[in-house]
Structures are given as C-alpha cells and as structure tokens.
Design a protein around this nucleic acid. Structure first.
Length: 266
DNA sequence: TGAATTTGACCGTT
DNA sequence: AACGGTCAAATTCA
C-alpha cells in the first residue's frame, strides 16, 4: 500500500506557473523547464476543458526525487499551459539542463508553505526536512504580485512565456539578484500580505539580449487559506526596462535561503 | 529490446 | 458521494 491515490503530503511547496507557448516554437509539448519528467497519469478535471497531465521526476525511482509537475491547458486558450510544480527536486538532475559553462544564476524558488493545519492542530514544528540542494527554474521574466484577487482561474493578463529551453541562461544571470524582497509570508496566513510596491503591477522585465520575449504568469500560494495572497509573476512581452521586482518567495522558515546554486555535476 | 507513455482502476481527501 | 491524484499494467515509440 504505497498510498496510492489521494494526496500524499499537504505540506509540499507548490507554485503554479502559467506558460504561454507560441505555436511554431515546438516547445509547447514537453515544456522543458530543465528537468526530466515522466508522465505517470492523466485525469480529466471537471472544471477544466482539457485533462490534466501528471508528471514526475524521472529520478524518482533512482534518487527519490519527490518533485512532481502538473500540466493543465487553459480552458479557452490552448496556447496557455498551467504548470503546477509540487515538491522540490532532490535529484542531481544533470541530464537535461545544466550547460557546463558557467551556469550560476538559477533561481531558487522557496515556497514558504507552512503549516496549514490551522484547523488541525496536528502540525509538526519541524522545519521542513527538505534540505534539498537547489532546484533551478528557468523563470526569467517579470514578477507581478497580486495581493488580493484570489480568483482561482481568473487571470486577466496572460503574458506570453516563451520557453527558452535554457538557452540564454546568461541573460537571466541578473534576473534574480539576491535582493529578493523578504515578503512576509509569515507563518501561514498573513492578514494582509499587501505589498506596497506590489500594488498590482510590478513588472520585472528581463531584457535579455533581445533574444525572446518572456511572459510568465506565476501563481504562488502559501497554502490553501485564502488569506495568503497570491503571488503572480507575470512577464510581459513588452520590453519594459522597468525593473520593479518583488519576490514572493519568502523563506519564512529558512533564513538561510538557499540561493546559491551548487555546482552541477555533469 | 528497452524505455516512456497510455489508459483504467483504486484510494484519499474534500 | 464526488473529485482529484497516484499506481499498476498494457501499449507504443525509439
């Protein structure tokens, strides 16, 4: 009984990233985010017009990487894929991404997921045991933080996210300075996670070498509580040099912030 | 031949 | 009870 079915861990960091693929690219299928995934299931969602695909890290059986990914097509816009990442990569995924050349600029998204056991006092004080190295995401785009608007499926703006497929990593080198605003994600439910600067339009546009326009919409949820604000990272294809960046990833539990990319062993 | 994917069924949670 | 998620086996592709 390996716990088939159902959710295995409620306390797993999860963030949603909306990706809009431009037809003609060919990257729409696999949506290469730099990791190797293996599809292990597909299910139809009542609210979704299209089925949702479930992917798991290919190293799961080998290294025990618990990272999982869910890909869901937009209800109306087939060009938009909603990818929900769950868990973090603990594997040495040195197969797909990781260009040998200096690739020291990955983004480590730390989800402040916390104890959502507000109702159940069964929470464990432990501070996440997931000391995994770091996973890198190729999110290079702008971040937009939405404080209110918890509309689950309502994204007014759907930027276009072009999957560079880890091409111009050098470009994102400066994409995320360690600045990272320490958002007070707070334990779990911030009464008002209102970010002053993130009043709705914080665009952090990375201006690559004019390579491509990135547009990404990210949904970050601390927990299921509506109290937690949703952080959305949006990228505008617009070449707006405006650098207003708000980082939703507030390591409330880990001040250490694993922002350093450990050397990738190829 | 091997690996990855596909489909159905089971189970846990809501 | 229904939905959502995962597993397991069968099938398909490389």
């Amino acid at each position: 009984m390996i716990g088939s079915g159902g959710i295995r861990r409620k306390t797993l960091p999860r963030w949603t990233q909306q990706v809009r693929v431009s037809l003609g690219r060919g990257l729409e299928g696999p949506l290469d985010d730099g990791f190797s995934w293996r599809k292990y299931g597909q299910k139809d969602i009542l609210n979704a017009k299209h089925p949702r695909g479930y992917y798991r890290c290919s190293h799961r059986n080998v290294q025990g990487c618990l990272a999982t990914k869910q890909v869901q097509r937009s209800d109306e816009d087939p060009t938009i894929f909603e990818i929900t990442y769950r868990g973090r990569h603990t594997c040495t995924q040195a197969s797909n991404i990781v260009p040998p050349p200096a690739s020291d600029s990955e983004k480590v998204l730390q989800d402040p997921n916390n104890d959502m056991d507000l109702q159940h006092h069964n929470h464990m004080p432990l501070q996440n045991q997931q000391l995994s190295p770091e996973m890198l995401l190729n999110l290079q785009a702008s971040l937009k933080v939405q404080t209110e608007n918890l509309d689950t499926h309502e994204q007014s703006l759907i930027p276009s996210f072009n999957f560079p497929s880890t091409s111009n990593i050098g470009a994102q080198t400066q994409a995320f300075p360690a600045t990272v605003i320490d958002n007070n994600f707070v334990g779990s439910y911030s009464p008002s996670f209102i970010s002053p600067a993130a009043s709705g339009t914080n665009y952090f546009s990375v201006s690559p070498s004019g390579m491509n326009s990135l547009g990404g919409h990210q949904h970050f949820r601390g927990c299921e509580s509506e109290l937690s604000g949703i952080i959305s990272a949006a990228t505008s294809a617009t070449n707006s040099p405006t650098v207003g960046l708000d980082f939703p990833f507030g390591p409330d539990f880990d001040p250490n912030f694993t922002f350093d990319n450990h050397g990738f062993y190829s």
